[in-house]
């Protein structure tokens, strides 16, 4: 049954259905979809901010659906940090109090809360801003605070609900880079929601593409672009250049080199191949060990670039 049929027959909307996935420890897992695709609902199912009507959620082997109210609060306070699209900082609390709220909930002593808030603010580059109030900060700084708040209790899991969508493009780019850097340092298992395909490609180790509450494809970024599983995904990625993701094996043709051509592996990225041609090569041999897989002529590369540019 699809969304329209359910609406006609029962007068309700399917938020999320048949959307199963698992996130590996330390991985950044992006869920990408347009508004109304159910991505914000699905991330709220993980910590049961929205109660699923059916289905299972497991966090480190624990069945989240079976937790009572107290255990669920404990899971939210200790295991999971969340960042929101519109920051959702409490305007009546100082930055430090905002950041330390998770620890306050856990009834940690004041000194510990202060230390954790300072440490988290330092991590996001806002040391010394603790005594200010949220509306004294710019949008980008506010979202850094949002990130610090999520990190303060040192949770294993980060839920990020379109964290950078409300920011200016340049600031968004900076924060993406910083988050990637931070992410490599702190190694948090991250579920990252976005409606921006470029952002998903940049942030995600793996990406799930959602439509109408269902997952269309779950894959590594390059496979999403090069090998879309459905028409919907294909249409989606059609605006993205494949050139960044293709390698020698996608360009080569069968055949043998005439003479003494330079040799490359099948996973060689395009820029390296282009460099070889601009250094004067006329054709390249693609080899896996001793076996010749194929050859690439300059015209093959040019055709491939032309094809990419002429996509819709």
């Amino acid at each position: 049954m699809d969304k329209d049929e359910a609406f006609k027959r029962f007068g309700c909307v399917i938020g999320v259905a048949d959307a199963s996935f698992s996130v590996n420890r330390g991985e950044v897992f992006c869920i990408m979809g347009l508004s109304g695709s159910g991505k914000s609902t699905i991330i709220r199912h993980v910590n049961r901010l929205i109660e699923p009507t059916d289905g299972q959620i497991h966090v480190e082997g624990r069945d989240v659906m079976s937790l009572n109210a107290g255990d669920l609060r404990d899971l939210r306070a200790r295991k999971i940090g969340m960042v929101f699209q519109h920051m959702a900082l409490w305007p009546h609390k100082t930055i430090a109090a905002n950041v330390a709220f998770g620890l306050e909930v856990q009834k940690r002593p004041l000194e510990q809360r202060k230390a954790a808030a300072d440490a988290a603010l330092t991590k996001v580059g806002l040391a010394g801003w603790g005594a200010r109030y949220p509306d004294e900060l710019s949008g980008g700084m506010q979202q850094r605070v949002g990130l610090a708040r999520a990190l303060a209790a040192d949770p294993d899991i980060l839920l990020m609900d379109e964290p950078f969508s409300a920011l200016d493009p340049l600031i968004r780019n900076d924060l993406q880079d910083e988050f990637l850097k931070l992410s490599r340092e702190v190694k948090k298992t991250t579920l990252f929601i976005t409606h921006d395909l470029d952002e998903a490609m940049k942030m995600g180790n793996r990406i799930a593409i959602m439509k109408d509450g269902r997952i269309e494809q779950t894959d590594r970024p390059e496979n999403i672009v090069l090998r879309p599983a459905t028409d919907y995904v294909a249409r989606f990625v059609s605006s993205i250049s494949t050139l960044k993701y293709i390698s020698a094996s996608e360009i080569m043709t069968a055949g043998k080199t005439a003479g003494d051509a330079a040799e490359f592996g099948p996973s060689t990225p395009l820029p390296v191949l282009l460099q070889a041609f601009s250094d004067g090569a006329s054709e390249l041999a693609i080899k896996d060990g001793d076996a010749t897989l194929g050859i690439i002529r300059a015209s093959d590369v040019l055709d491939r670039i032309k094809e990419d540019l002429s996509r819709v």
Partner: peptide
């Protein structure tokens, strides 16, 4: 919702 997300009763 943010308060809920951080485990507040």
């Amino acid at each position: 919702e943010a308060a809920d997300a951080f485990g507040a009763s």
